[in-house]
Each structure stands twice: as C-alpha cells, then as structure tokens.
Design a protein around this nucleic acid. Structure first.
Length: 290
DNA sequence: AAATACATCAACCGCGGGCCG
DNA sequence: GCGGCCCGCGGTTGATGTATT
C-alpha cells in the first residue's frame, strides 16, 4: 500500500521549532489533548507535518520530561534494559517515564556505546538485539518471554541500586531542566522546552489565561523588568536566546519566551491571556518592533 | 585568534503495524 | 479480507557547540 504524502509536501516547514510554533502546538494539545496529529497542522495553521508535531510534543513539549545529564542510576538502568530488550527505545523509555525514547537513544549512541566498546569483552555473550541475525525475532521474543522472570529480577536489582535516593545529588531535579553535563549546547532547546513545560505546569484552561502570557505582557510593558529575565539568558547562553532568526524582533521578546517561572510569577498581577492570545500578542509585538 | 576535529542532540525519514470503513 | 489512513518506532542525518591544535 502506498505511503501517504506527508513531510515531502510543498510548503511544509522543516528544521528547528520556534518558540512561537511551540506555543501554538502546546495550546492546541492543551485544548484537544495529544493525538489526532493529522489534524494539528490544519487546525493550528502550523506549517509542519503531523509527524513533526507529534515528535515535538512527545520529545520536548510534553510535561514531565526531564532533560540534562543522565544520573548513574539511570545509566545503569538503561544498560540493563538495553541488554534485556535490545534497541527497543520506546520500551526502555517506559521504565524512565521522564525521559524520551529519543533522549535515551541519543544517550546510548553518544555515551554508553562508547563506554561499552572498550570493555565489550566483559559483555559476553553480546546482548540479543532485534538486529542480531543469529536469532530470529520470534525466537528471541520467545526466549525473552521465558526469561521474563530473570529479566524482572535484573530490573529490580537495577532499580534498587539506589532506590533510597530518588534524586541522587548528581541528578537534577525535574524543575531544573537545562544545564548539567550536556553543557551549554542544550541551552536553546532546553530553555524553550523548559518554559513551555513551566507554562503547562501552571496552565489554566483556555480562557482563564496562562502565566506566560502575563509574563509576556509585563515584560513587554516594562522592558527588563526582572533580573530573572536576564539571568535565564546568562552570559554563556545569551546568544542562544536569540539564535533563532524567526523569533526575535528583539531580545526583549526572546526573553519573554525564555524567562523562567519566577519572572512569570512576578507578572502574575497582569490580566491573563490565553495561549493563543499571548501568541498573537507576541506576533503583534514582533511586527511592531520592526 | 583562527582553523579543524570531535561531540552532542534535535529533527527527519522510512517502515511496520493497528484501526477502520 | 482488502485497502487506505494514521500513529509510533528506530535508524540516521545535519546543525550547532565545544575542545583541541
């Protein structure tokens, strides 16, 4: 059967998401819930394909995602699970609910694979991945099924390694999303994702407004209101705050999007706007700035 | 300070599978 | 049962940032 035309359609935007697009997507999902991705571009006017919308939501905008470095605990857990399940990242991600399969996959490819290589001799026999040609898929799954108890025990061991500390010292708290070992390179997306997440955490149903809108309004009317706004665009990442050519009528607007919840809270007294309204305001401000 | 190499990660692509008419 | 549509997954790529020379 033929594939439906999707991302190769004319007029479909590709590449990095802008904060404006994020807001549009988040507001849509907030209103309609995740799913029916096919309808998202049509209903929101986003020039993105449905896949791209789904990916953006599941990997970055969805609330509860933790970004930044992986803790030792998580690392061990991933190693265990990868050995058990192979490269079934979605399955592995289900054991780390605040991590996305994409994140885990990247972490595996960039860190763990390398770590394992030198000591691969100690990993014998090699983990039965789905791509292992020697073991047919059905065979492997049957084997996995029969070994399920063993697997569970191994998993329990992994989980109990430091079960006493749910948040080890080296593990950032969910509230602090950017930073950590991944370095400044994660800042632009981490920042925007973080803000969207924060936006969601304090989200009010459409019509009752959102904190970010209030923050935007306040920031717009009183440029450079709070130190938080500049803090979030700290020296090392200042350029990242306006690294997006689509955003950016001014650094003020960028800051409005990149400011943290404190800044938003500071502005809480302002009449709240809905996400769509805030986005429209943003667009208007941008146009005005030019 | 500039050039180059390397590392990281967000996003894309293509495929498989499930659902529905 | 068949075909079309949509979603989700895993592999891969390309842009960007960082380290090294």
């Amino acid at each position: 059967m033929g594939r439906p035309p999707c991302c190769d359609k004319e007029g479909v935007k590709k590449g990095p998401w802008t904060p404006e697009e994020d807001i549009v997507l988040v507001s849509y999902v907030q209103e309609h819930g995740p799913g029916n991705w096919r309808a998202v571009p049509a209903k929101t006017g986003l020039l993105r394909c449905s896949k791209s919308c789904r990916l953006r939501w599941t990997n970055y905008l969805r609330p509860g995602i933790r970004r930044g470095g992986f803790s030792d605990h998580e690392e061990r857990l991933i190693l265990h699970l990868q050995a058990l399940l192979g490269n079934r990242w979605a399955a592995i991600a289900s054991y780390l609910p605040d991590r996305t399969d994409n994140d885990i996959k990247n972490f595996w490819n960039t860190h763990l694979k390398k770590k394992l290589r030198p000591s691969s001799a100690s990993f014998s026999p090699p983990p039965p991945t789905m791509s292992t040609p020697l073991v047919a898929r059905g065979q492997w799954e049957r084997k996995l099924q029969t070994d399920i108890d063993l697997a569970r025990r191994a998993l329990r061991d992994a989980l109990s390694v430091d079960a006493a500390s749910n948040h080890p010292p080296d593990q950032p708290t969910p509230a602090i999303i950017s930073s950590s070992s991944s370095g400044p390179s994660a800042a632009p997306y981490a920042l925007s994702e973080r803000n969207i997440s924060m936006m969601l955490s304090g989200w009010a149903p459409p019509g009752r407004g959102s904190a970010v809108a209030a923050g935007a309004t306040e920031s717009a009317s009183t440029a450079g209101t709070s130190s938080e706004i500049t803090d979030c665009c700290s020296a090392s990442s200042a350029s990242n705050c306006n690294n997006n050519p689509v955003l950016l009528p001014s650094t003020t607007t960028a800051s409005m999007l990149a400011c943290d919840s404190d800044a938003m809270a500071t502005a809480a007294g302002v009449a709240p706007l809905s996400a769509i309204e805030s986005w429209l305001l943003l667009v208007a401000l941008r146009n005005y700035a030019f």
